[in-house]
């Protein structure tokens, strides 16, 4: 499971849905793997505003990955200038400016860093969801449904 996906998931129990402690899920005994992927600037530009930054920071720290700034960086700091405002107005494809280091770092963290196996633990109810072969299982046992 990619770190980006983890940012979109919470405890599956209805009783936990409204509880702030149920998000993010906390990785435990996580075995990480790097799966290389091509940088997708357009996707990151679209999806980064939807990321809960504080939750991402918590997870990054818990996984022992290089820590993130306290506050989400501004788009201008992430995306090379030529490809933001100019690209939106010009009809032609602009020459691809070199991606910023921040963009490459976020790409690496969100889309290349994968939890291959381990557990995802709810901070509210303590329920553990298993991750195996990169696939997390959120099915609840009947007494928790």
């Amino acid at each position: 499971m990619k770190i980006l996906t983890l940012n979109f998931l919470t405890c599956a129990r209805k009783a936990c849905k409204a509880e702030p402690a149920a998000f993010p899920l906390h990785p435990r005994d996580a075995e990480l793997e790097i799966v290389e992927a091509e940088l997708n600037t357009e996707f990151l530009r679209n999806v980064l505003p939807r990321v809960e930054w504080e939750a991402l920071r918590v997870v990054t720290e818990e996984l022992g990955l290089p820590s993130l700034p306290n506050v989400a960086p501004e788009p201008d700091a992430i995306f090379p200038a030529a490809s933001t405002a100019a690209a939106a107005t010009a009809n032609e494809t602009p020459a691809n400016p070199a991606p910023t280091q921040l963009l490459q770092d976020l790409h690496h963290l969100l889309l290349e860093t994968t939890i291959l196996s381990g557990k995802l633990v709810c901070g509210n109810c303590g329920h553990e969801y298993a991750v195996k072969e990169g696939i997390a299982n959120f099915l609840l046992p009947s007494h928790l449904v």
């Binding site: 599956a12 129990r13 899920l25 799966v35 992927a37 997708n40 990169g134 696939i135 099915l139 609840l140």
Partner: peptide
Amino acid sequence: LTDHYLDSFVSDLTNSPVRGCL
């Protein structure tokens, strides 16, 4: 198309882990 594969997970729509889904 692996660059376009984010993830798969096991879940049930009535007890979904998707953030904000209820």
